[in-house]
Amino acid sequence: MAVNSIRFTRSNNRRVGIQRFKAMILFKKRSVLPGFGPALGFTLLYLSLIILIPLAAVFLKTAKLTWPEFWQTVTSARALASYRLSFGTAFLAAVINTVFGLCVAWVLVRYRFPGRRIIDALVDLPFALPTSVAGIALTALYSNQGWIGRWLDPLGLKIAFTPAGIVVALVFIGLPFTVRTVQPVLADLEPDVEQAAASLGATRLQVITQIVLPMLWPAILTGFALAFARAVGEYGSVIFISGNMPMKTEITPLLIVTKLEQYDYTGATAIAVAMLVVSFILLLSINLLQWWSGRRTSGGVT
């Protein structure tokens, strides 16, 4: 702004014009919060560098394919099997995480017990641990020789090197998302509201299902969406536990890497585009669901 005013001191008209333009675009109303312009500019630049440009490159690379070639690549039997596996296991893992993440958040918020802070810290561990380490550890545990796998094997339950193993790995890496989104909202729920429901004769179960869960619903959805998105893109932990058999336990990210290793760059980006589009549609619909459920309660009760 200072630079602008120096630059345009001579041309008064132009300066006024520019300022009016600025006022029109950026400062529709005078705001006490300064810096809207620079902040938005930085945000756009940052998002472009980090997200938009790489994604655009993916689409550009894919555009080298003709439409039939593209369609053939993304709908090949192997690719379709990998989508089913990736989205299916990610969905299942996100559902499991939503239920158990809610339990963990509930225990951490509602009860005081020795070791609570340690458990609280443990929840973040999947964020920090290299996912390949998690994958190797889980494989070791759940293979038919492993500590857990050896007890499941006689029962006919195979976890490692099956889709079930993939779900286990995805549950592990997704847990913090559901816990950390629900926890603060649960902590902020006023005890008044639950007490009011109890004084109206509701049982504990009715209070939870009719009062607490609906109020947590937006946070639960967010946690689900984050855990799901994270699981769809997960690579490191899954490749160790899945066994990576094409058509059976090959996830889409692995298929992309396989194509890259075969120097099939356009094939890799084509599948990436397919995955991006599906993920985008799914996340968008979750967001819409959230917007719809949040719309009526927005503003909150003060």
Partner: peptide, 19 residues
Amino acid sequence: TVGDRRVGFVFQHYALFRH
């Protein structure tokens, strides 16, 4: 219990079910 007493309780901050 609070549910059996048949008391109506009105809270300072309303405690309405906002959903």
